[in-house]
Design a protein around this nucleic acid. Structure first.
Lengths: 153, 153
DNA sequence: TAAAAATCTACAAGTTCTATAGAAAGCATC
DNA sequence: GATGCTTTCTATAGAACTTGTAGATTTTTA
């Protein structure tokens, strides 16, 4: 399960990516548009900024905007900003200790060997799909369903 | 991250699968052999029993044993016994509510569409590999490393 | 200087995870 | 049928994490 943080982040970034005519976005605006608790979104956008996904400026006329194009922002970079490196076991994590306290031999650990495959499988999906891909797919799905609806009616 | 529960479960089951000469195993024995808190392991084995992975008998001469052969126990069935159905978002879960409270249209939700791919990628790994596969791979790795060590020395 | 907007610090309720303690129930053997 | 072995059940407790909220502070523009 990814956290609400990650989901809110994806929604906020999708909103910004979809609304290309605007130069910058207020926290309050994004919060209202995507139905995200404003104070919670504050912290989320701050994290996204620290990860180089968003840029911001204070003061009147300020706000947040995408630091890169939607096609250059992977789903993985968003999720990892909040979930860490998504290691299924500590010994597969680069950021943390890197060892499982209960494990005597990581090199031959059956769990670790199998989980490494899981980690790779997840990465191969989330590091490939971009914000632009996700929006395009959602839009495609929306049109497909509305056409289906037309035929049904 | 999978929980300690899942890791302990895998260790306990691996121990039983590796030790084929024994008919049944005491909780205390498995706990000592794999360095798992005994009282914690109690609850874990109980869960594995409820999932049809273990069988047990009380009283003298009793204990736990594998309900199926190691080749017929998938890693997925073990992990799911403790982590639920591993849905990356609530709307992809079969067991729980099945809806994300913050989502207005699940059918076209960009997050859901992408996460469904993640879920499928994870499942394709963990539902394929069995306890027997894991043990074999670990053993293979152990021998490979010991050979490497021979050459080094 | 005043207003706008992001940023920082602190906190709080709820949930989950890891584990422990002690009692109860079922089984085999003497 | 008593005794001891072993699983099973119930209750609890601390720690960590998640999801928010509140209020003060800093930066920027006009």
């Amino acid at each position: 399960m990814i956290s609400m943080r990650s989901k809110y982040a994806i929604k906020a970034l999708s909103y910004m990516a979809r609304t290309r005519d605007k130069e910058s976005f207020l926290i309050a605006e994004v919060a209202a548009a995507e139905n995200i608790p404003k104070k919670f979104l504050e912290a989320i956008l701050l994290t996204l900024k620290s990860q180089g996904i968003l840029t911001s400026r204070k003061g009147p006329g300020g706000g947040y905007w995408l630091a890169r194009s939607p096609g250059a922002i992977t789903l993985g970079s968003i999720i990892r900003a909040f979930e860490g490196d998504l290691a299924p076991v500590p010994c597969l994590s680069e950021t943390s200790s890197g060892t499982c306290p209960e494990c005597s031999d990581a090199a031959t650990c059956a769990t670790r060997l199998a989980m490494a495959d899981v980690q790779k499988a997840v990465s191969s999906v989330i590091d490939t799909v971009t914000l632009a891909d996700m929006i395009e797919r959602s839009e495609f799905e929306r049109q497909r369903l509305s056409q289906q609806l037309d035929f049904t009616i």
